[in-house]
Design a protein around this nucleic acid. Structure first.
Length: 149
DNA sequence: GGACGAATAT
DNA sequence: GATATTCGTC
């Protein structure tokens, strides 16, 4: 499972024994298909007609398991039919935004500087209460430190 | 049911 | 290190 997609990384994963390659975040179709690998494993264990070698690292160490070659799924579920979702936009606190944030927090005072209040005063498009809560958490120890000196 | 914030994840 | 997410509490 990786957030990174490239032909090379998929090839490497499959070569090293992966049965599939999932790109994060997983989508519903991943969960719809992931159990087929488990089922294959169950069938394989009862199958006397084995023609492949498979290594599994588990709690007991490295195990060698026989697996029919054709069951190794090289048609990973992420292909051009299912483009991976666009990377989530990551909020960035620019210097200007941060300055504004600090100003508002100082105005309100630490006790009153709650995310919802800050959000309302800043009034920046795209900015959410969660963004502010996270930023506030990161800055709050600094604010307290400055306040006591 | 939403806001909050500490903890935790990415 | 910065930002996102989770989760218990109020």
């Amino acid at each position: 499972m990786s957030s990174h997609y490239s032909t090379n990384s998929v090839t490497e994963a499959i070569t090293k024994g992966a049965s599939d390659y999932w790109i994060k975040p997983l989508e519903e179709r991943d969960f719809q298909t992931m159990w087929k690998h488990v089922v294959k494993g169950l069938i394989i264990n009862e199958n006397q007609n084995m023609n492949g070698i498979f290594h599994i690292n588990n709690k007991r160490g490295r195990e060698q398991v026989d697996v029919p070659k054709q069951t190794i799924d090289e048609n990973h579920s992420h292909n051009d039919d299912y483009p991976s979702p666009a990377k989530k936009f990551r909020w960035s606190w620019t210097q200007q935004l941060h300055n504004q944030f600090v100003t508002v927090v100082n105005e309100l005072g630490l006790e009153n500087a709650k995310p919802k209040k800050i959000l309302k005063i800043m009034d920046v498009p795209g900015l959410t209460r969660e963004h502010i809560a996270s930023h506030l958490q990161q800055r709050v120890s600094w604010f307290k430190f400055v306040d006591c000196i």
